[in-house]
């Protein structure tokens, strides 16, 4: 089977759109017949990634590649980058502003959640250039 490739744009500073890409990816994977837990894990990881793009990076894009063995995702933005990745990965660490917290975000659980729900997570980031997060979820 040819891999299925999908591409989504996440617009910046628009919380009402965050969740669009993860919702679509979820429906796509469900439609392809992937198991419920895989679909849920991927959807949660993408949602956290989308929210981070909106809150921290002014938007970005998501590339998805689906094969029967593996779902690969690249979350790409040209935001400010992450100066200290190991600190950013700590549960509870967040630089989200107060107005974002009032919406129920900024708990500092996003990156740890992404790690928890995927099999591989690689963060490529450079301050002033942007951040790309490569994710893989294997179908056992």
């Amino acid at each position: 089977m040819e891999p299925i490739k999908l591409h989504y744009v996440v617009s910046g500073n628009d919380f009402t759109c965050a969740g669009e890409a993860s919702g679509k990816i979820k429906r796509e994977l469900k439609g392809l017949g992937f198991p419920n837990d895989i679909v849920r894990n991927v959807a949660i990881a993408v949602y956290e990634g989308e929210i981070n793009m909106v809150i921290h990076a002014g938007g970005g894009v998501i590339d998805v590649e689906i094969t029967p063995e593996c779902i690969s995702l690249d979350l790409i933005d040209e935001g400010p980058g992450i100066p200290d990745v190991s600190l950013a990965m700590k549960e509870g660490f967040s630089t989200a502003p107060e107005n974002v917290r009032q919406l129920g975000f900024g708990a500092g659980m996003g990156l740890p959640n992404i790690k928890k729900y995927t099999d591989e997570m690689i963060i490529d980031t450079e301050v002033g250039v942007g951040t790309t997060i490569h994710l893989k979820v294997y179908i056992k």
Binding site: G23, A43, G104
Partner: peptide, 29 residues
């Protein structure tokens, strides 16, 4: 919301005071 997203289970009743559009996103996911 991130907390809920990682902890709430399928078919749970979700009790919250957050009634914004992102809560609906979390409920769907």
């Amino acid at each position: 919301l991130s907390w809920v997203m990682s902890k709430a289970k399928e078919d749970n009743i979700w009790l919250t005071v957050m009634g914004n559009i992102n809560s609906i996103g979390v409920a769907v996911l």
